[in-house]
Amino acid sequence: MAKLKKNISIGAIIRISILSLWSLLVLLPLWIMIINSFKARVEIYRSPLNLPTSFDFSGYLSVFQNSSFLLYFLNSIIITFASIALILLVTSLASYAIVRWKNRIASLLSVFFLAGLLIPLRIGSIYLLQLSKTLRLIDSFWSLLPIYVSMGIPIGVLVLTELIRRVPTALYDAARIDGASRFGTYLRILLPLIQPGLATVAIIHIVLFWNDLWFPLILIQNESQRTLMLGISHLFGQYQTNWTRILATLTLGSFPVVIVYVLMSRQFIAGLTAGAIKE
């Protein structure tokens, strides 16, 4: 018995050491990024690991005062939220129909949508570039909207049909007896019921769209239309030597998603993992 106890504690020590070591490996780079964004250049070089001797906000000030950071930040917020709102709308409608329409077309369409889970849209980039040119959307961040909505449809349908299937049929019958129309049932009964699923879908796509570089890079040339990540991608060329400013921009750029993550890490992890597991 004594031996068993000893084994367990040794196991626990190894376990905690490994996990702590990795946590350190995660936190250290982020720590270095954040603390050095408050230092003057000389100090960044001299003592990169220490807290700043005096907080220097010049990096942040220059980001806000003489750069397009706020504009790009706003562009990113607009395109991210517009895309997510549309994804939630079209996929909740489609999922409602997939579950409720007892027809072969419905199940075929469901398979058709889910096939998109396995095909990364980047493969179609060349044609999308051409299409955006034809539609005269090129050079505006709105060109990202239909692409992002399309990217969100497979995951949206996957998560929402799963949830709608669990809604008891009796509820629809009750709604119909009360004289609710099909759309009224969707609006007043279904949408409130599937809120957790809508949140999951939204969270997955906040990360995907906020952090996306590929599509802005190929579709947007116009400087005023850049998303935040596209703006950040030009950072090194422009401010090669101003490390305070680079670090401040990187910190600010990752801030929104990390905050959402820290506030709701459980839903976040569940969301990002859900798509993979159910595949």
Partner: peptide, 24 residues
């Protein structure tokens, strides 16, 4: 009429996913 519930998702998905991949 259930079909109309599919329509928005279907159009976007065909034009901006299926079409671009097939065309590539």
């Amino acid at each position: 009429s259930w079909f109309f519930y599919f329509l928005p998702a279907l159009i976007i998905y065909i034009v901006f996913t299926i079409f671009p991949i097939a065309n590539s």
